[in-house]
């Protein structure tokens, strides 16, 4: 028991550490393209024009020149970003020991993203918790805490869409193995609320290619059902066709609602996914960066 608990506990700082690393690499990458200086709210200096509120005048800047400058802040367009990752049993799977489990990868992406977003000053909420959207360090602390608790305690399987505010940006991370119709339903609800977002589809490489041979008894992670296959190779083709069909349907569905779709296998680098995700967020909304 204790050993197990320690193991799990050891994973948390590890997760945060890895997430930090990823976030840093992305942030520095972004900053090299932008202007110097962090400045959370500072956007640009602007010549004073009539009508501008006097308290906006940046006196230091004004003193350097003859003209009067006001400090123009960014438009108050702080995004509510809601993160949700699938914690169902099927996520707890990796086909090989040296490959991350899908849930681990999902957690990592959530964590890294939340770090980045907290730095850019977004309101972040982890869906499924009755907690107001948080900003900054409070957000990352809360999320890492929740991830830790989720590992320890029960899972929150389904996104709670009612809690999601309108105009939120939603990031859904899952393996999307449930039937397409169910996904479509939830997508519709969100679309009705005028919510946009991104689907991050995580899958294990084995799920895509079925690399098994011979006589295999396949067990479900969700329930106790199992299927015995006498010769796996013989059904491989059919399976691949079937699952690709599922993926295609999923993609079509998502793009038809003009959501973003990012697919991510657990063997590729997590940075990639986080970066793509971040860029897609940038595309859709003007973030404060």
């Amino acid at each position: 028991m204790r050993e197990k608990a320690e193991n799990i506990a050891a994973r948390i700082p590890n997760l945060v550490l890895r997430a930090n690393k990823i976030a840093e690499s992305i942030l520095t990458g972004l900053h090299s393209k932008k202007k110097v200086g962090p400045g959370e709210t500072f956007w640009q200096f602007k010549k004073y024009e009539h009508g501008d509120p006097a308290q906006l005048i940046d006196w230091r800047r004004t003193a350097k020149t003859n003209e009067i400058f006001i400090q123009e802040r960014e438009l108050e367009t702080v995004q509510n970003i809601t993160l949700w990752r699938d914690t169902s049993a099927s996520m707890h799977y990796s086909s090989k020991i040296n490959i991350d489990k899908k849930i681990d990868r999902a957690n990592l992406i959530v964590m890294a993203l939340s770090i980045i977003l907290s730095k850019t000053g977004e309101n972040i909420s982890l869906n499924g918790h009755k907690q107001k959207p948080l900003r900054g360090k409070a957000a990352t602390d809360f999320i890492s805490d929740q991830i830790y608790k989720n590992i320890k305690n029960s899972y929150i399987d389904n996104p709670n869409f009612i809690d999601i505010k309108n105009n939120s940006h939603v990031i859904i991370i899952s393996d999307f193995l449930n039937p397409i119709t169910k996904i479509e339903e939830s997508l519709k609800i969100l679309a009705n609320k005028n919510i946009h977002g991104c689907f991050v589809h995580i899958f294990d490489p084995s799920e895509h290619s079925l690399p098994f041979k011979g006589r295999v008894n396949f067990n479900s992670l969700e329930d106790n059902s199992s299927i015995l296959i006498g010769n796996v190779e013989s059904i491989k083709k059919e399976y691949v066709r079937k699952i690709n069909n599922h993926y295609k349907k999923l993609k079509d569905l998502i793009s038809s609602h003009s959501w973003q779709y990012i697919s991510h296998t657990t063997i590729s680098l997590p940075e990639e996914a986080v970066k793509n995700l971040f860029l897609s967020l940038n595309q859709q909304n003007k973030l404060n960066i």
């Binding site: 193995l177 799920e207 098994f212 011979g214 295999v216 008894n217 992670l221 296959i229 079937k242 699952i243």
Partner: peptide, 20 residues
């Protein structure tokens, strides 16, 4: 048989029977 956990099990549902 070899016992394997496999999440996308539902996609195997109608495939294996004739091999059994």
């Amino acid at each position: 048989p070899k016992n394997i956990f496999f999440p996308p099990i539902q996609f195997l549902n109608n495939l294996g029977k004739k091999e059994e």
